[in-house]
Nucleic acid binder design. Structure first.
Lengths: 231, 231
DNA sequence: GCTTCCCAACTTGTATACAAGATGGGATGC
DNA sequence: GCATCCCATCTTGTATACAAGTTGGGAAGC
């Protein structure tokens, strides 16, 4: 699949998606240094669209550029991730409060179909569940009706994705996620705002905690096998 | 003051600031079309840094680009402004709740100095008051301690600035702003969360309303004197 | 072996060249 | 007068050329 031919004159966009995928799939490692020429050579394009893509990823918080010296993928910043999880809490709780204060939206119908299912029908692949989980929370915020808040939430989602996925690599966490999403959804549909917000807050706090634990573990392993690398 | 010489190799940044200033000061009008070459010629730089600046302003929601056809400043979108004001409410109320739940921060000290003053010491220039108003709300959010939420709030602030300033062109609105800010601040310092959030919500709602009224008026005038122009 | 210094090779940031699509206005046909 | 078509011109998107700062490694000196 040649990327450069049929993308409708959007090489910069293609490079952007490609580099972002490299980040999420750990082909580019946190702290790694690289140059615009390397990316350009790999993608078989010139530095111009590469630069456009990298500058965008920089603005989005993924990359750093050191003038005349090169680019690097920002190291994982757990303090930042915690702040982003807290931002999720703010945005999602507000959405749930608004949802509980209006007529039931049919925009929540797909969530019922995906999450209020018999245990046998639950998905188990961690990649699929991670996608479904993102969609659950995004749908809540979008259904609340403020596209600007939804966009902010989507930005947060992208920025924590790299660590959030780790949560679902534990099988029992998938089951908890199903249980908790179902409970949250039922509370929203029943318009129990107090209950829904409490459940959602603890659900996100729990994710935050799990990710912190796993990340620390991974960091420990990485240090053992690689020694000092970043900075 | 030559911009190109001493800016430490940051032509793109200088162009970005320049164009943004043109937007805020109505040298570029909503709906106006322009090309990269025009901007480049005015700023005496090549298209490369211009393009970098424009792409950034596009990502930030100020501009649109139509492929091979040109750029234009997005028309004022009042529905979007309302959503952004609602986003402010979400972010600032959360900040105030957090502030009321912790020990008093000395980071609020500058606010006391600026807003808890005798009527005689109040500023009256609408540009200064608009800046001070932005700083008031930004300081509240920053003091709450989550830099990510503060950054989102700052982004919102930039996007509504163009209409928000209109609020302060009415002298009595400046007085109301002083009164309301003082009341909000006192409630926060007294840790009266309920009162502080109520006051802050109605304060922002009021701003939203005023801006809507003024904007509609301005739109009306613009239509009268210019006829159909955009779209 | 150790430190210092210097330079060649990279790097980004900017300018310029080129490709190809969008567009508007005027000539043409009626 | 009016609609249609076509092309010169303008536009973005990409590639390439150039300028200037950063850096790392090896020679030189001791």
């Amino acid at each position: 699949m040649k990327a450069s031919a049929k993308d409708g004159d959007r090489l910069a966009e293609a490079v952007y998606e490609r580099v972002k995928a490299d980040i999420f799939e750990f082909r580019l490692l946190p702290g790694a240094r690289f140059s615009e020429n390397e990316i350009a050579a790999r993608a078989r394009v010139s530095r111009t669209p590469v630069r456009e893509a990298l500058l965008r990823l920089q603005r989005e918080g993924f990359l750093e550029v050191h003038s005349k010296s090169g680019w690097r993928l920002r190291p994982l910043d757990f303090e930042r991730f915690e702040h982003l999880y807290d931002a999720r809490i703010v945005l999602e709780l507000d959405a749930v409060r608004k949802l509980c204060g209006t007529q039931p939206h049919d925009s929540l119908a797909p969530l019922k179909k995906a999450w209020l299912v018999a245990p046998k029908q639950r998905l188990s692949g961690w990649i699929e569940v991670a996608q479904l989980d993102e969609a659950f929370h995004a749908t809540l915020v979008e259904a609340a009706g403020n596209p600007e808040l939804a966009r902010m939430h989507a930005d947060v989602t992208e920025r924590i994705r790299i660590v959030r996925r780790l949560d679902f690599t534990q099988a029992e966490r998938i089951q908890y996620t199903y249980d908790e999403h179902a409970a949250i959804l039922r509370a929203i549909l029943a318009r129990k705002a107090q209950q829904a917000t409490l459940l959602l807050r603890s659900h996100i706090e729990q994710s935050k905690l799990e990710v912190r634990k796993i990340s620390i573990h991974r960091l420990h392993v990485a240090h053992l096998e690689a020694g000092p690398r970043n900075r």
